[in-house]
Amino acid sequence: MTRSRRLLVLALAVLLLGGLGTTLVLRSAARAGQTREGDPAVAEGRVTLGRPAGLAFLNAAPGPHRGALVSVPARTPQAERTASALTCRRFHAAAGTGVCLNSTPGALAQDNQALIVDSELHTVHAFPLAGTPSRARVSPSGHFAAWTVFVSGESYGAAFFSTRTAIVDTRTWALEPDLEKFSVLRDGRPYTSSDVNVWGVTFAEDDDTFYATLGTAGQTYLVKGSIARRSLTTLAPNVECPSLSPDGTRVVYKKRVARGASLWREHVMDLRTLREQPLAEKRSVDDQAFWLDDRTVAYALPAEGSVDTTDLWTVPADGTGAPRLLTPSASSPTHLG
């Protein structure tokens, strides 16, 4: 092939790829501007973490408030949404303290931040994130916040992924930047390995105990952690993204039900007996579920026909009943008040 012909082929390839890229961008923009049937109205207003009997979550409905933290009355979750100016990829709050994992599309990992916000959603401290936001939790007292990011890979179903999980004391701003540095007891014996990953923290009420996932050697475990002792102790295998019940006796979590595939089913485990109960939701849930109360859990599932929007669903925590839609185009639910 002559040099001129090679240049012509190269030019045509560039034009084709450029056209394809433009088409994908335009299609994505068109999808983002489409209102899904059943999406509630969204209006800008004042959102406060102290709102009595309120429910907050991240709005995924198309429009200018996409990604914003919004609030609704807890009893009418599909009511019109009040949108704040705070936008996040993940959010959680308790006792007037919130953690917002912020990520700018296309930005470097160093531009991602964990924002600690007060009850009026004002940022009181910011921490750089080492990767892509994944999980976020605040302790019941509001004294601790935790977050998990992906530092390689993009999902827990990927063949290779690495996470980093941090815990911060919101009173002193003392930071534990990497829970992988905590000591580990596996099956009652000290354990060390270069492939340890920790993710999905959930806090108990004592401002010391937490639960999380530990992954190593192709297996995942529910671990019980101590902030003061900087320790992790394995409790049970095949547990991911636990969430502690309000009464502190159970965790809801996703359990891998197909080896080598990204297929999980929600279960609830009694922490006293380690007995587990599969829930009525049989679709694969890749989320850290949230307890609406001691009887009901909520979780995000991909919206039908969408690759970047989730709906919030609920299911009874005792294995009975059936899944029901809580509210469409939403994620990261949390209580207000």
Score class of each variant (00 low, 15 high):
Phe210Glu: 09
Phe210Cys: 08
Tyr211Val: 09
Ala212Trp: 11
Leu214Trp: 11
Gly215Arg: 14
Gly215Asn: 09
Gly218Ser: 05
Gly218Pro: 07
Tyr221Phe: 15
Tyr221Trp: 15
Leu222Thr: 05
Leu222Val: 04
Leu222Glu: 04
Val223Ala: 09
Lys224His: 09
Lys224Ala: 03
Gly225His: 08
Gly225Leu: 05
Gly225Ala: 09
Ala228Leu: 11
Ala228Tyr: 06
Ala228Asn: 08
Arg229Ile: 00
Arg229Thr: 02
Arg229Gln: 14
Arg230Leu: 02
Arg230Met: 01
Ser231Trp: 03
Ser231Tyr: 03
Thr233His: 04
Leu235Ala: 02
Leu235Glu: 07
Ala236Tyr: 09
Pro237Lys: 02
Pro237Asp: 06
Pro237Arg: 05
Pro237Ser: 03
Val239Tyr: 05
Glu240Thr: 15
Glu240Asp: 09
Cys241Glu: 13
Cys241Trp: 04
Pro242Tyr: 06
Leu244Gly: 05
Ser245Asp: 02
Asp247Ala: 06
Gly248Trp: 02
Thr249Ile: 00
Thr249Asn: 08
Arg250Thr: 02
Val251Phe: 05
Val251Asn: 08
Val251Arg: 04
Val251Tyr: 04
Val252Lys: 01
Val252Glu: 00
Val252Phe: 00
Tyr253Ile: 01
Tyr253Thr: 01
Lys254Ala: 13
Lys254Val: 04
Lys255Gly: 08
Val257Ser: 13
Ala258Gly: 07
Ala258Pro: 03
Gly260Asp: 09
Gly260Tyr: 11
Gly260His: 11
Ala261Tyr: 14
Ala261Gln: 15
Ser262Val: 12
Leu263Pro: 06
Trp264Val: 05
Trp264Asp: 15
Arg265Ile: 11
Arg265Leu: 13
Glu266Tyr: 10
His267Val: 10
Val268Asp: 05
Thr273Asp: 09
Thr273Leu: 11
Leu274Gly: 07
Leu274Val: 13
Arg275Ala: 12
Gln277Glu: 11
Pro278Val: 12
Pro278Met: 13
Pro278Leu: 13
Pro278Ser: 14
Pro278Gly: 13
Pro278Arg: 14
Leu279Phe: 12
Glu281Thr: 13
Lys282Cys: 04
Lys282Arg: 15
Ser284His: 11
Ser284Pro: 10
Val285Ile: 14
Val285Asn: 09
Asp287Ile: 02
Gln288Leu: 07
Gln288Asp: 06
Ala289Tyr: 01
Phe290Arg: 03
Phe290Ala: 05
Phe290Leu: 03
Trp291Cys: 02
Trp291Arg: 01
Leu292His: 01
Asp293Met: 02
Asp293Ser: 06
Asp293Lys: 01
Asp294Glu: 08
Asp294Met: 00
Asp294Pro: 02
Asp294Gly: 12
Asp294Leu: 01
Thr296Gln: 02
Thr296Phe: 00
Val297Arg: 00
Val297Trp: 00
Ala298Phe: 01
Ala300Tyr: 01
Leu301Lys: 02
Ala303Cys: 06
Glu304Met: 06
Glu304Tyr: 06
Val307Trp: 10
Asp308Cys: 01
Thr309Cys: 06
Thr310Gln: 13
